[in-house]
């Protein structure tokens, strides 16, 4: 356990020692700022009962833009840079298990991802205070949105870690996970008005649609199927990463 914590600490350390960490937070805040101005426009123009979490996370593009952009930036470094700098060899010749390394890198990425959302959430809470309308930020919707951020992030980050384990180039790692990220998001887009209806294939696709899942989360609806979906994909990608790490020891 001590070893695992030392590794996680190290992962977080890199993020905040180097510029990347701050760049990620800056990108998040910048994009979130755009989202916020849009949100304020909506709030000013017409009366709405929808909680702001739904407007921000459910309908807006900004949330997806943030997830798709920052997850590759957070994860691209994890294995690729260690491999290119040679520290991977130093790491893998210590008595640390392969799983420990994979999980520590993943945990570090998740913690950093969550941390980069904190300023944004503060803004939403602040907005609620300023607006003076408590219904705007329903705590249950807020909790749902948080869970959604976590679930979707966990899948995207696991995919990113996997992409990073495949290569020694951070650029290739980032591009690969960006591609996976955009692919997953694009495949879940629907033409307007097609929600809930359609043939069997359409219904299956709807269940796999991450945007629809996030809409539910943002309304405070927690669907067990979505949780299982993200848990399984996270585990799948981590398992694949472990296989890649282990491959070095194949004859």
């Amino acid at each position: 356990m001590g070893v695992f914590l030392a590794l996680v600490r190290r992962e977080l350390g890199i993020a905040f020692n180097a510029l990347t960490g701050y760049v990620v937070v800056a990108i998040t805040l910048l994009l979130a700022g755009f989202g916020l101005t849009g949100l304020l426009d909506t709030l000013n123009s017409d009366r709405t009962d929808a909680p702001i979490t739904e407007m921000f996370f459910g309908d807006g593009l900004v949330f997806w833009l943030i997830v798709i952009v920052i997850t590759p930036v957070i994860t691209m470094r994890s294995f690729a840079s260690e491999k290119s700098q040679g520290t991977y060899e130093a790491l893998m010749t210590t008595p640390v298990g392969d799983w420990q390394v994979v999980l520590a890198k993943y945990t570090g990425a998740v913690l950093f991802y969550l941390a980069s959302w904190v300023p944004m959430l503060c803004v939403l809470v602040g907005l609620r205070q300023v607006a003076g309308v408590p219904e705007l930020l329903d705590p249950r919707a807020m909790a749902g949105a948080l869970l959604g951020i976590g679930c979707i992030g966990s899948t995207y980050l696991a995919a990113g870690i996997f992409a990073s384990s495949l290569t020694r180039s951070q650029i290739i790692a980032a591009m690969t996970s960006l591609l996976i990220g955009v692919g997953v998001w694009a495949s879940s887009l629907r033409p307007a008005g097609s929600d809930g209806s359609g043939d069997t294939v359409g219904r299956v696709l709807d269940h796999l649609s991450v945007t629809l899942q996030m809409k539910d989360f943002a309304r405070g609806v927690i669907d067990g199927r979505a949780l299982v979906f993200h848990l399984s994909f996270t585990l799948l990608f981590l398992f694949l990463t472990h296989r890649v790490v282990e491959m070095r020891r194949w004859k």
Binding site: A6, G86, V96
Partner: peptide, 25 residues
């Protein structure tokens, strides 16, 4: 000590050695 002595260049000497000592159990 691998070829070209790879180190985490962003860490402080003492922190690095402590980190490595922890990894080595």
């Amino acid at each position: 000590m691998p070829e070209n002595n790879p180190l985490h260049t962003d860490m402080r000497v003492r922190d690095y050695l402590k980190f490595r000592a922890r990894l080595k159990g």
